[in-house]
Design a binder for these strands. Structure first.
Lengths: 213, 213
DNA sequence: CGATAGGGCTAGGGTTGC
DNA sequence: TGCAACCCTAGCCCTATC
């Protein structure tokens, strides 16, 4: 089974904001293209953890067990929908959001156990921390803009970020500092980004200017 | 100002198919992030050529004057958009494609005159034209795959491409034709590449097959 | 030394999560 | 919606090898 990316529109429609979902599997949930009435109850085991109750933490555990050092929780998907985020369009009106979510998670677990599941192709959908940004800036300061592989080797040896990620992040930082990069128009940085950028904006602009010159 | 590569999307989105654009500058065109109402009329001079009418040929002339033996017309860009290729998203609905293009060219000229313009640091970061591809294929047909220095001497005497570039481009062409080269997986060629490849795919595959045999 | 094969790297546009 | 993350191709560069 090949897991596809979640359609964009699903985010808009989804109303379930819960971080975790502790409800047990309700096999009365009939979902399009996936689990049905006859799927029955599933209670898989992973190591010492009995997943009688399925929540996002369980999925995270599975992710680690699958060899993903960096928690790819956001990557865990089942049949086009994301674990932990029930999709309205796959949910019966009579089914609660939580129940739908739980059934998704169970479906994912079943297919994971059977080996009939993959992780998405995206390795790392996590936001940069201020530590990482600082490391990147130190790297750029030492090695210059463009030497991403070198910076990766010296400053990000133990980080999951690849050289390409560093390049992308530097571009994003430049944009967040009000610089126009490529064909994209100037962007308005989001609050979280601005918070991380505090004290770095001048430095970034200087380094970008020096590189362009 | 740092000149960057032409966005591939221009090939798809751009609706202006004219090879040249002879319309004179219309200063009523108001563009985001660049020329405005108060920019007024510009009529720069380059040598004997009076650029009262700005078209792509004029830019080509300037390129030569700047020391580029081979016309880097595709490289000429002004503030994120390319001369000669007005981007729809930068154009007012009430402005024609030609008028937008002309104003871009004028903007570029102004900045070129003021010295506020550079070409990229890489010697040759331009996409291959169909003429170049054709020359390469003729060369490979005559001299065979691998004799890049010979092909360079006979077919690319006046081109800025080096023998190594020819080798790289041949590899790229093979990949774009669906052939696997080296360790890299097959690639999905981009629209612009496919456009140039039209009518050459069979020829390339045949020559590659013959060389492998 | 010159030339080539092959892998590595980056710029920049594209796509997608959220 | 639009920012911030990742993805992908085309092109250039580096190194080993002869």
């Amino acid at each position: 089974m090949r897991i596809r990316r979640r359609p964009r529109s699903d985010f808009v429609q989804n109303t379930c904001k819960e971080e975790t979902c502790s409800q047990t599997y309700d096999n009365s949930v009939d979902m399009e293209g996936g689990l049905g009435q006859d799927d029955g109850m599933v209670t898989p085991l992973f190591g010492d953890v009995k997943l009688g109750r399925v929540d996002r933490r369980s999925l995270q555990y599975i992710s680690f067990a699958a060899g993903y050092e960096y928690p790819p929780l956001e990557m865990v998907r089942f049949r086009g929908s994301w674990g932990g985020c029930g999709q309205r369009k796959y949910r019966k009106k009579s089914t609660s959001c939580k129940a739908a979510e739980t059934s998704y998670l169970f479906g994912f677990l079943k297919h994971f156990v059977s080996g009939d599941v993959n992780f998405g192709t995206r390795k790392n959908y996590s936001h940069w921390t201020s530590d990482e940004v600082e490391a990147l800036l130190n790297g750029v300061e030492e090695h210059g803009v463009g030497n991403w592989a070198l910076i990766k080797r010296t400053y990000f040896k133990t980080f999951p970020r690849t050289a390409e990620h560093l390049k992308d992040k530097w571009r994003g930082l430049c944009r967040a500092c009000g610089l126009q990069v490529g064909s994209k128009q100037k962007v308005k940085a989001q609050p979280a980004t601005l918070e991380i950028l505090k004290g770095f904006t001048y430095k970034i602009r200087e380094m970008a200017r020096k590189h362009d010159a």
